[in-house]
């Protein structure tokens, strides 16, 4: 392994004079999970969306190790290339499951869609894989033909994860994956994410405001404030021995249970 999976350089996004995010650079290796934390308005979601190709940044490069062509700047890719990437090698788990699911399509159809989008044409196989994945995210096989509108929030989120991971992506973007879920449901989801990341050798970038989530899931951490990265490093080091004033404030503000 001589090069990172993802090499982000100098990403910046401005809204007029206002900074969305500025001067962000980092690399990510296979199997690594990077957490990005900050409060509302810190620029963390802007950064995630710029990297994932949902927003166009004003500056910077995002080099990704494509299997076929080596390191390529995804920001310079043609639209068909980028869309293909986001259906196969990349995955994006939205905070609100309904942004990442087709609510009028059954659970099985949701999971099978990415397979059909890359050419799967055998109904029986598609259904079998959908059942397998629903099982891995702990959704009962009996729910395969139900619509996500009939699912609880936690189930919808797990379905979103299954839908994203079925094509075996190597990089997963997650935007507040446990936001809005009950605490017990969050625990289940975190456990699931951890084991999937490890089993599949995934790399992930997780944006969250919840420090407990990054402590459990992320190997490395970036702390953002007002669009800038103020501190970065090993997760437990940044949380246990914060150097920057803002990080110290953030860590000391967390309520202990």
């Amino acid at each position: 392994m001589t090069q990172p999976l993802l090499d982000v350089r100098g990403i910046a996004k401005f809204y007029g004079a206002r900074i969305g995010c500025a001067d962000v650079s980092f690399d990510l290796w296979p199997g690594e999970v990077m957490g990005i934390v900050g409060e509302s308005g810190s620029g963390k979601s802007t950064l995630l969306n710029c990297i994932a190709g949902h927003l166009e940044p004003d500056a910077g490069e995002v080099f990704f190790d494509t299997r076929v062509d080596g390191m390529k700047d995804t920001l310079l890719m043609s639209e068909p290339e980028r869309r293909m990437l986001s259906r196969t090698d990349w995955a994006f788990v939205h905070q609100h499951a309904r942004d990442g699911l087709r609510m009028s399509v059954s659970a099985g159809g949701n999971v099978g869609e990415r397979l059909m989008a890359v050419g799967a044409r055998h109904y029986g196989d598609i259904r079998a894989r959908a059942i397998d994945w629903l099982g891995r995210v702990e959704i009962s096989e009996s729910r395969i033909d139900d619509r996500p509108t009939a699912f609880s929030g936690g189930m919808q989120q797990r379905l979103q994860i299954a839908r994203n991971l079925v094509t075996g992506p190597r990089l997963v973007f997650m935007d507040e994956p446990t936001g809005g879920l009950d605490v017990s449901v969050q625990a289940r989801l975190l456990d699931l994410l951890r084991s999937l990341v490890r089993e599949m050798g995934l790399s992930a970038i997780i944006v969250t405001h919840d420090l407990a989530v990054v402590r459990l899931l992320a190997d490395r951490l970036m702390v953002m404030k007002d669009g800038h990265v103020v501190e970065a490093g090993l997760t437990d080091q940044v949380l246990d021995d914060p150097q920057h004033a803002y990080t110290q404030l953030l860590v000391s503000s967390v309520l202990q249970v």
Partner: peptide, 30 residues
């Protein structure tokens, strides 16, 4: 399955027809 004209035009342009088979899948499952 996709009410947006902007999106369907893109799907035709980029040959992204997975959704068409989703419709057929749904039929068979129902």
């Amino acid at each position: 399955l996709e009410p947006s004209e902007v999106e369907t035009r893109k799907m035709h342009a980029l040959e992204e027809y997975g959704l068409m088979h989703v419709k057929l899948y749904e039929d068979i499952s129902k």
